[in-house]
Design a protein around this nucleic acid. Structure first.
Length: 183
DNA sequence: AAGAAGATTCGCT
DNA sequence: GCGAATCTTCTTA
């Protein structure tokens, strides 16, 4: 949960064969230990194994038949908790992202977790890699100033809906969700 | 082995 | 703004 707040304003970078893709994280959601909405809630399975890695690893999940979800693990090894990256403000490789996203408008390139993963070319190949170690995919701090961070309930869940575990940069147009959840 | 649910997206009204 | 599409993964028989 602290990590979720910390990640807002940081930069996600992915070096692909086609070039570098990067974007500023503007929206996250925390899925802490014991959260019944979290993918780790029912214990470790082959698919969520990387969620039980130490803090700072990637956990990639496929859902709803067409979307990848990109998470960062948040706890010690064996615990099982993470932070979902829900939206990015594209910085580098925007032309590439537009190609992957079928020519979507700049605003819609990475506004939403599934879109973000598609724009950043995140899939199972990135599952389980260490985001703090040198490699094709990592997280970086930014010189850019981070705005005021707001918090709200999480989006799109059917369980544990009431907890305020979503963090976002207030007023940023690249944040997903209805307007009242962006201000 | 089959069924149900899901951290979504897109298109149409 | 609403409803359908889509398929992976877990649960239950």
């Amino acid at each position: 949960m602290e990590l979720a707040r910390y990640l807002v304003g940081k930069i996600a970078v992915h070096d692909t064969d086609g070039g570098r893709l990067s974007g500023r994280i503007v929206e996250t959601e925390a899925y802490p230990v014991g959260d019944s909405a979290g993918h780790a809630f029912r214990g470790e399975t082959p698919r969520n194994a990387s969620l039980f890695l130490a803090r700072g690893h990637a956990y990639v999940r496929f859902t709803y038949g067409s979307s990848f979800l990109f998470n960062v693990t948040s706890e010690a090894a064996g615990v099982g908790a993470g932070v979902l990256l829900r939206a990015l403000e594209p910085l580098e490789g925007i032309d590439l992202m537009q190609r992957f996203r079928g020519g979507a408008r700049l605003l819609d390139l990475a506004r939403g977790p599934g879109r973000l993963a598609e724009a950043m070319q995140i899939d199972f190949r990135q599952d389980g890699i260490d985001l703090c170690a040198p490699g094709p995919l990592w997280l970086a701090t930014s010189r850019l100033k981070t705005g005021v961070i707001g918090e709200s309930v999480r989006i799109g869940l059917t369980r544990n809906v009431d907890r305020k575990l979503r963090f976002y940069e207030r007023g940023n147009s690249f944040v997903s969700g209805p307007r009242r959840l962006r201000e």
